[in-house]
Nucleic acid binder design. Structure first.
Lengths: 251, 251
DNA sequence: GACTATTTGTGCGTATGTATC
DNA sequence: GGATACATACGCACAAATAGT
């Protein structure tokens, strides 16, 4: 078969790209179902009359796209019929989710054990009525400095043992929890909304009641479940949340 | 130089991985500063006494980690001293940035050419006073349906030719622009804030003036610059923006 | 466990194409 | 045009992991 005669998006593209396009087409059309193995490299060499180098470049792209998993000695398994997602918001560390400097000061106002109210339960990923630790705090530019945001954090009971360490904690709480619990954060989610401030929050932030707040709800989870969830209220007049998205370089 | 004698993480790892580790070390230590070019492939072949294949595999890893940008004929530029970031917010398509169904209806209210005011200029990435196209619109659940958000979009003059097609556009405007201009979107940014609604916006959304709005500013750029930027005001009482982050599998 | 065939991984040498300077 | 540097491509060899005998 002569590759150049096949219309897969232009005859003068590199061969490995043409082969990649054909394989993608076959995969998404179901010719190679998910869970099955692709033909071997050598078989593709024969089919397309190209060298193993060329086949491997094509397969490498499939791997980059998250469609193919290869294992030495075993073969190449189809793991997805559609390519990897296109755009990513990159976060160097979870601290990037918080967009303020790490040397800010966390002013703990109250720590208490509570039974989770239904409303908060769904938000933090816990069961209503179960025991959690609630921490109310204000983040400031520095000790006794300007308030940045009001935070209400919720920690599940299985991690309540770290309570004594919280007041001395520098940096974000999730880092303390990750270290002490030995549970690795694998997952984080964030929800952003806008709402008027309650009196207590407005007061803590030095704003008028019902002033506009940007509310961020964050949840950090390990395989065992939620590590910590927190609501953060920022003054709408002095805070915006920004993110950059880049197209996946493999495209 | 004998590669195996250098302790960069074990003597029996593949050569290209050892070279990759050494180059990473050099980069993060500042031996090759950001913005500078790495030595050429052939120079590394000589230094490490390996084939070009091996050097290229090592460099490929640096590219995968987002530390290196290579350009045919030009060289390999250091673009970061640290590897790829840890967490990603995955966006299947740019439409995911908009978190409403694509079959919503865009109700165009006004299209006009303007000279960019200074305030908007910085936001959309244009020059103050330059000519842009301004489009004011309301997105609705369906034609004559409930309003979802108010949008003000800005398109640079070089793309003003698509103006006649805008009223017939189904789906997001950035898709129309990407198709017509032939410019590929490589970059998108989003800024999220909270503010009270102006009278006009409150009116269009059926809310009281000064009701709380979540404001999203989005900018889509190609290599030639901004393709389109838009402000989106959503009612704070009925909209939250959410995202999921996963730990990068490559770590 | 030992052995073998298969399959992908690593590595070399070489040649030619193509973008950049 | 020429020199340089990365990209594509072939052929070959051997290593390492896997699966089955």
């Amino acid at each position: 078969m002569v590759i150049q005669d096949i219309d897969t998006g232009g005859p003068d593209r590199p061969r490995y790209q043409q082969i990649y396009a054909m394989l993608r087409e076959r995969i998404s059309s179901g010719a190679y179902p998910i869970g099955s193995n692709l033909p071997t490299e050598v078989e593709f060499c024969d089919e397309f009359n190209v060298s193993r180098y060329t086949v491997r470049e094509a397969l490498r792209r499939l791997v980059d796209q998250g469609m193919l998993a290869r294992r030495q000695g075993s073969g190449s398994e189809i793991i997805a019929t559609e390519p990897h997602r296109n755009f990513v918001h990159q976060v160097r560390s979870l601290a990037d989710l918080f967009q303020y400097a790490l040397d800010t000061h966390l002013d703990i106002r109250a720590i208490r054990k509570i039974r989770l109210p239904a409303k908060i339960a769904t938000a933090v990923g816990g069961e209503a009525g179960s025991q959690w630790l609630e921490i109310k705090s204000v983040r400031r530019t520095h000790k006794n400095g300007e308030p940045i945001c009001v935070t209400h954090s919720y920690i599940p009971d299985r991690l309540a043992g770290i309570e004594p360490d919280i007041p001395d904690c520098v940096g974000p709480l999730y880092a303390l929890l990750e270290e002490r619990s030995g549970e690795t954060i694998t997952n984080a989610s964030q929800e952003i909304g806008a709402e008027p401030m309650t009196k207590a929050i407005a007061n803590a932030l030095g704003r008028e009641p019902r002033a506009v707040a940007l509310r961020l709800l964050r949840r950090y989870s390990s395989r065992k479940g939620t590590l910590i969830a927190s609501f953060n209220w920022h003054p709408g007049d002095s805070f915006t949340y920004s993110m950059e998205l880049q197209r996946n370089p493999s495209h």
